[in-house]
Design a binder for these strands. Structure first.
Length: 469
RNA sequence: GGCCACGUGGCGGAGUGGUGACGCAGCGGACUGCAAAUCCGCGUACGCCGGUUCAAUUCCGGCCGUGGCCUCCA
């Protein structure tokens, strides 16, 4: 079966045909580094990691190029830096914020079992490239040269009217957008939908020499960084562009406008993929509701990264997810049961089941693929289970770490627990079940669960115990 | 207000114009002194109202509900 992907551009699922099977190219919008990554940010990271793995499987690992950027220039970053480090010069404060946030981002997603992308460019490295090659400034100058952008009051603006099919990705016409507009339009704009490619910086703000003969130093607009990094690393037209559905408009629409008009191409990427949104316990995640969950918090709460990963993949990437504690508990249970299968070895050597791959090839149908894993477990096809788990990025490491932490906790209470267990076994031997049950209840209250097993050789009853989560 | 997506059993979640995936929970059984764990078995669901059709959860229309986006802006 051939790989099929849903394309936002055509609103259809279609067979994926790479431009060059020897170099399949994918770009995914990465984080803006000003705050801890929340669980909604983790979704595209995990989803497109699975797609990356699938593409590597279909086209060979060294025939796939995956770019996921870091946006380290943005007004949100500036605001955060000014807030958190009021005593430092702004640029120094910004560097502190971006460096710390980027480091934390990598720590977080490492726990989620994602492969590093081929390239992870930073936006600031692509504003002006002294070594040459495409950068934001060269794109902006090309757009002005082509008549798709204009200079006004030290800004450079994209002239939306110059692009006849602007709005194709988000499926809305200029008329509709203007009718629905609810924000005042800056007076220097030619059209109300025109967006900023470059804007002047105030004193103290990060600034670079401006393009197009503008004397005031400035900084790039929000969308141009992705056009520059994608163009520089993947070329003017590439295969897949991904990101969260909230980025469809305006970010991706504007990326497309910039890249296509600068390069004079009919498309920027052939396939546009968008992951669905995430809610928390039935409510939208927002800081005001106080249900804003970061990856860091979940990990600190003791959820293994792989549990977060499985929880994410149990829903198809285009569907909305309701992220709940109950769902995490269920995911943990499922993952634990798989990894406790005798002889399980999550790896990338054993042959992969055709049905499993077919499910993934059907627009990344991970819930269906996971159903296959359940089937392997039920049929004791441990080899297929291990191969599929390994393929999906599960190796049991974070689960094992959680077990080790649990073992440490257990060790700390062993001296109180063990005598009680011995007492209970003795009570059982003399058939004093009231006493034996009383001890079991007492231990249960302490969060200790017991399991009785019969030793096959001696016939003796033995008791194992664990600390409940 | 405009555009878009989604609405499946107690819960999660695939899928399909006509034999009710799969998982969790639950229930029954085996095992157990009783539990736990494990194993075996058990599920007449597709938001509402119309329409098309021999047949709709699946296609079409309307409605309701939930969510997303609607320029740089906090």
């Amino acid at each position: 079966m051939a790989l099929k992907l849903y394309n936002t551009l055509t609103r259809q699922k279609a067979e994926f045909v790479p431009i060059d099977p020897k170099n399949v190219r994918m770009y995914v919008c990465g984080p803006t580094v000003y705050d801890y990554a929340h669980i909604g940010n983790a979704r595209p990271v995990i989803v497109f990691d699975v797609l990356y793995r699938l593409l590597r499987h279909v086209y060979e690992p060294d025939h796939v190029t995956y770019v996921r950027n870091i946006t380290d220039v943005d007004d949100k970053i500036n605001a955060r830096a000014a807030r958190d480090y009021p005593d430092l010069p702004l640029n120094e404060a910004i560097r502190k914020v971006t460096e710390a946030t980027e480091k934390q981002f990598h720590k977080d997603i490492d726990a989620l079992g994602v492969l590093p992308p081929t390239y992870e460019p930073r936006a600031t490295e692509y504003i002006r490239r002294p070594e040459g090659g495409e950068d934001m400034v060269s794109l902006i100058e090309a757009l002005v040269r082509n008549g798709h952008a204009y200079v006004a009051e030290d800004h450079v603006l994209f002239d939306v009217a110059s692009m006849p099919d602007y709005g194709r990705l988000s499926n809305r016409s200029l008329d509709e957008m203007e009718a629905g507009a609810r924000v005042e339009v800056a007076p220097y704009k030619k059209g109300p939908m025109d967006f900023v490619l470059w804007k002047p910086s105030k004193r103290g703000e990060p600034a670079w020499p401006s393009p197009c003969g503008i004397a005031t130093p400035g900084r790039p607009g929000w969308h141009i960084e992705c056009s520059a990094m994608a163009g520089a690393l993947l070329g003017p037209v590439f295969d897949i562009h991904g990101g969260g559905i909230d980025l469809t408009f305006p970010h991706h629409e504007n990326e497309i406008a910039q890249s296509r008009c600068a390069h004079n191409t009919p498309v920027m990427a052939n396939v546009w993929m968008h992951n669905g949104f995430l809610q928390v316990e039935g409510e939208k995640m927002s800081k005001s509701l106080g249900n804003f969950i970061t990856i860091r918090e979940l990990l600190d709460d003791g959820w293994p990264g792989e549990v977060l990963r499985l929880n994410m993949l149990r829903t198809h990437y285009r569907q909305p997810i309701d992220w709940t504690k109950k769902g995490l508990e269920e995911s943990q249970k499922i993952l634990t049961s798989w990894f406790s299968q005798d002889g399980l070895d999550a790896n990338d050597r054993d042959p992969l089941s055709k049905d499993f791959i077919a499910a993934l090839e059907d627009d990344l149908n991970t819930p269906k693929a996971i159903a296959e894993l359940h089937r392997f477990a039920a049929e004791k096809d441990i080899e297929s289970l291990g191969a599929a788990l390994g393929f999906l990025g599960f190796d049991g490491a974070t689960l094992k770490q959680a077990d080790e932490r649990a073992a440490e906790t257990a060790q700390s209470v062993a001296s109180t627990v063990e005598p009680l267990i011995i007492a209970r076994l003795e009570a059982r031997k003399r058939k004093d079940f009231a006493e034996s049950d009383r001890i079991r209840d007492e231990l249960a209250k302490m969060g200790i669960n017991l399991k009785d097993t019969k030793n096959k050789e001696t016939g003796e009853i033995e008791t194992t115990w664990e600390v409940a989560r």
